[in-house]
């Protein structure tokens, strides 16, 4: 599903002493089945932006278009249910949304709300549990008995079970150990390929942007200040630092190599790109 933001503004608690700008004139397009990363420092409006994707927040002015659904200030809540189903949201620390008595029932909760029959919901729940790598023997346990990493997988399965076409991930790997983080990102990449999902990822991990994203959106002070491929975003390291962001590990490494006399045609963003460009430059005995 393609997504378009057209001059979207959002104001928190308008006309009160707590009034605050959430989004200011944000416009961009996300092609169907692409992987888009949203980056920016804390409080820059990333989470506000993604909450517009499934109508949890409605623009104060402007239009959000998801496929053929148009979301404006006037959209009523009654029309939002199909949008909720087609745009799956994985919030920060999604394990906080678990509540049911068994893992299976918690995962099936979404499909049941969206009108699937009990059998369909259970079958979708089993499929989603399998997709996120939860062993079958956990399905009848209470979600509160599981480890933190397993709880997060249950919560993600609970979103996937409703068969969304767009998957919005708000810092899905926060609080996981490095291995759990790598596994989780690989899992999202596989899900995207298998189910032809459009993925939107809010993240502070520049390596994930370099490794997975087709395009990146940079937010600062409620504004969208740059949109482009990761190569375009990271092309100017000084600008990146000025936005309180960082370079991907490989790019950082390459920059240090430049001060030692190495030369790169373009700044490598991933370990693979770095290795390819280094191959010809290493002295013979080092190979």
């Amino acid at each position: 599903m393609a997504i378009t933001f057209d001059h979207v503004n959002y104001m928190y608690q308008p006309n009160s002493p707590f009034e605050a700008v959430g989004l200011s004139d944000v416009s961009f397009t996300v092609p169907s089945e692409s992987f888009t990363a949203i980056i920016g420092h804390t409080g820059s409006g990333k989470s506000t932006l993604v909450q517009h994707l499934n109508g949890l927040l409605k623009p104060t002015s402007g239009t959000v278009t998801v496929d053929d659904f148009q979301l404006t200030a006037k959209t009523t809540n009654k029309h939002l249910k199909s949008l909720h189903q087609h745009v799956g949201m994985v919030f920060q620390f999604p394990e906080n949304q678990l509540f049911d008595q068994t893992v299976e029932r918690d995962i099936a909760f979404g499909p049941l709300n969206f009108g699937f029959t009990n059998e369909e919901a259970m079958s979708l729940a089993h499929q989603a549990a399998h997709d996120v790598g939860l062993p079958d023997e956990l399905l009848n346990r209470s979600p509160f008995e599981l480890s933190g990493g397993q709880m997060r997988r249950v919560a993600i399965a609970g979103v996937l079970a409703s068969q969304p076409r767009v998957l919005v991930l708000d810092e899905p790997t926060a609080g996981l150990d490095p291995r759990g983080r790598a596994e989780m990102m690989a899992m999202f990449a596989k899900l995207k390929a298998d189910q032809q999902l459009t993925v939107i990822l809010v993240t502070h991990q520049m390596d994930d942007v370099a490794d997975y994203a087709d395009q990146a959106l940079v937010m600062a002070h409620s504004n969208l200040i740059k949109a482009g491929t990761p190569a375009e975003i990271f092309a100017n390291p000084e600008w990146v630092k000025a936005q309180q962001l960082a370079l991907p590990t490989a790019a950082n490494f390459a920059q240090h190599l430049v001060t030692r006399g190495f030369e790169f045609d373009s700044l490598p963003l991933t370990a693979e790109q770095l290795a390819i460009q280094l191959r010809g430059q290493l002295p013979k005995e080092g190979r």
Partner: peptide
């Protein structure tokens, strides 16, 4: 508010 959002995204209607 956060939990409400998460459950609304899973199809719960709090005001209907």
């Amino acid at each position: 508010q956060t939990i409400m959002n998460a459950q609304r995204a899973r199809g719960v209607e709090f005001n209907n």
